[in-house]
Design a protein around this nucleic acid. Structure first.
Length: 306
DNA sequence: CATTAATACCGCCAGG
DNA sequence: CACCTGGCGGTATTAA
């Protein structure tokens, strides 16, 4: 019981130290990089959308609610989010404010580091060839918080940082690999796992959003037959490839409509729809309102709030 | 991996 | 004028 209390205590201590570093760095900007880590500070609850890279995020203060298709995921201070493929996530921070901004520390998961550590992992754990889980949260144990805090302490010493960042990043990666979602992360280090192949196809889609794209060509990029491609794609993303592509385009369109002063027709075209009719229909189906009305409404909602 | 039957999506036209 | 909705047929996609 005593040991348990000690570890809880040190988790809290480490977390508050990380929070101090994050607050301190936040004075420099809303996103600051410290070696391989990114510190972000967010003061608004604007919904955002992005295709995440395989990523680890520790929430140091505040919380965030995410949507992946139908699925809803929430995590808050002391908890981590792990994303092990490129997934289209939308979401917003929970009640942040200038006085209490949301603070997060994130790290891109490097496949080369994972490949490197894989033999060690295999020594005491079986790593299956395919895994269903691609995203999840966990409560950060002290063993994970500790290297993060140590890395942040090097913030003011560029020389120490260049020498010591790499081994500490490796340590963090190891802690993640041996944690609850370890086998999912491990997939990234297996270049021929369905997981890694599908990730390749997804990043291609993300980078060539407006191109006319056939699914069989995508399957080619992933190096699979269309049948197996479908199976693996659904396993890792929960969506069929075409539906995924459609969501991507519509999400992109939504953010274009909100940020740029483009006409609906122009946006429809720029995300790859040659028929505004079809665009409007699919947009309505996904977001519940047609494009014009949706943007008008969300604009009004955000101005009336501020 | 290939086949196949059901389904979803796309672009067009007409009209509000 | 720009946007939205509904119907229609051909084709790509999906899942077994």
């Amino acid at each position: 019981v005593l040991r348990q209390n000690e570890s809880v205590l040190s988790a809290e201590n480490l977390l508050s130290e990380i929070r101090r570093h994050a607050l301190d760095a936040a004075r420099l900007g809303s996103v600051v990089s410290v070696g391989p880590l990114l510190l972000s500070r967010v003061e608004t609850s604007e919904p955002d959308y992005q295709i995440s890279d395989p990523l680890f995020i520790l929430m140091a203060q505040g919380g965030k609610r995410l949507y992946l298709g139908e699925r809803r995921i929430e995590y808050s201070a002391g908890q981590c989010l792990l994303v092990t493929t490129a997934l289209p996530l939308s979401g917003h921070f929970l009640e942040p404010s200038p006085r209490h901004p949301a603070l997060a520390v994130s790290l891109r998961l490097r496949s080369d580091l994972i490949t490197d550590l894989l033999p060690e992992l295999r020594r005491y754990q079986h790593v299956p060839a395919t895994v269903d889980e691609t995203i999840g949260t966990l409560t950060a144990p002290p063993a994970l918080l500790d290297p993060i805090a140590r890395l942040l302490r090097l913030r003011d010493d560029p020389v120490d940082m260049t020498v010591l960042a790499a081994p500490i990043e490796r340590e963090i990666t190891w802690r993640l690999l041996t944690g609850p979602l370890g086998v999912s992360i491990a997939q990234l280090g297996l270049p021929h796992s369905g997981h890694a192949q599908v990730t390749k196809a997804i990043t291609w889609l993300r980078d060539n959003l407006a191109e006319p794209t056939s699914i069989s060509a995508l399957a080619g990029i992933a190096g699979m037959s269309t049948a197996t491609f479908h199976r693996h794609f659904r396993r890792t993303t929960g969506m069929a490839p075409q539906q995924f592509h459609q969501h991507l385009r519509l999400q992109q369109a939504r953010s274009l409509l909100l940020t740029q002063a483009e006409t609906v027709t122009a946006v429809a075209h720029s995300v790859g729809y040659s028929s505004p009719t079809q665009f409007s229909r699919e947009y309505h189906r996904l977001f519940g309102l047609p494009p014009g009305r949706d943007t008008a409404q969300t604009r009004q909602a955000s101005t009336s709030r501020s």
